[in-house]
């Protein structure tokens, strides 16, 4: 039977010395979603992903693939894969050795599939991991993960420190060769613009809280960005935009829940980039707090 939700969190809290790294997270991630966790440093993205992987004890209710990650971590990891920016593959191992090891410990790993994926890369089986560039190590890690028949993939800043070519390759490989519509993927990254086309849903986090969550389709319907013509500036302003920013000396208006017909004719209208929307929401939240 297919599971409706891959992750269910209710009132999840993680405290460190009187500060909340997670401050009451309520979230339901449907199976098959590709969810982006977007937020500044300290927003709680990594902490939440660690909790999902059962690496942290948290308060509140948390269920991942029907299991309690704190108590059933070992069972959970048979169905969950992860890549984090700090997960280091052992440098002393050869590629062949690390593949053999994963094959020995993971019941859902296909050695043949991993080798087939690697055969399309520059990574050689006999190479020692310490001789590979950071880009190739991440590619190797992704190849291992892609050869595991997991239900949930957790990616925490997986491409941090990689150059543009490897970053693009990583996400295109992930979506074209890995994502099949049934797998659920949670991605946290600072390079929001690079994963925008990959996401089905996004949550914005700040100071341990979720400040917004929605599907990308719903976001695109709900928010519109207008670059008004010089003569339509006042008219645009009168429509009460939620946020105004300046880009190369030109004002850009962000509208929430405004019909597209009202904006057409005032300038260039299109859905906002996730990064711009995030900044706008952060500014809005900040000014609301100040008020």
């Amino acid at each position: 039977m297919e599971r409706e939700f891959a992750v269910k969190a209710k009132g999840v809290i993680k405290s460190y010395d009187n500060s909340h790294a997670l401050d009451g997270i309520d979230l339901e991630v449907r199976s098959g979603q590709v969810l982006g966790l977007i937020g500044p440093n300290g927003a709680g993205k990594s902490t939440f992903l660690q909790a999902v992987l059962g690496l942290l004890n948290t308060e509140g209710e948390l269920e991942v693939l029907g299991l309690d990650p704190r108590k059933e971590r070992h069972k959970l990891l048979q169905k969950v894969c992860s890549i984090t920016d700090v997960a280091v593959l052992p440098k002393w191992m050869t590629v062949e050795q690390v593949l053999q090891y994963v094959d020995g410990v993971h019941p859902r790993f296909s050695l043949e599939k991993a080798k087939s994926i690697l055969s399309k890369t520059d990574i050689k089986n006999h190479s020692k991991i310490k001789t590979l560039s950071r880009g190739l190590v991440v590619q190797l890690h992704l190849s291992i993960v892609m050869a595991i028949d997991a239900e949930l993939l957790v990616l925490d800043e997986p491409t941090l420190g990689l150059d543009l070519v490897y970053r693009k390759e990583f996400y295109s490989q992930l979506i074209e060769d890995y994502y099949d519509g049934n797998k659920t993927i949670l991605i946290s990254t600072h390079q929001v613009e690079e994963i925008e086309g990959v996401l089905s849903d996004a949550i914005f986090m700040n100071q341990g809280r979720i400040v917004m969550k929605d599907s990308i389709d719903a976001i695109n319907e709900r928010f519109l960005e207008l670059r008004p013509n010089q003569e339509s500036l006042e008219r645009a302003r009168s429509l009460n935009p939620m946020h105004i920013r300046t880009e190369l000396g030109r004002e850009v208006f962000l509208f929430e829940g405004t019909e597209i017909d009202k904006l057409n004719g005032l300038g260039e209208v299109r859905p906002p980039f996730i990064a711009d929307l995030f900044m706008a929401i952060m500014d809005k939240t900040k000014s609301e707090v100040q008020e």
């Binding site: 992987l53 690496l55 971590r73 070992h74 069972k75 990891l77 048979q78 894969c81 992860s82 984090t84 700090v86 997960a87 280091v88 593959l89 052992p90 440098k91 994963v102 410990v105 993971h106 019941p107």
Partner: peptide, 13 residues
């Protein structure tokens, strides 16, 4: 060397 995170990402208790 933080390989612990890799080892612990696999289903080995």
């Amino acid at each position: 060397d933080r390989t612990l995170i890799f080892w612990r990402s696999l289903p080995v208790s």
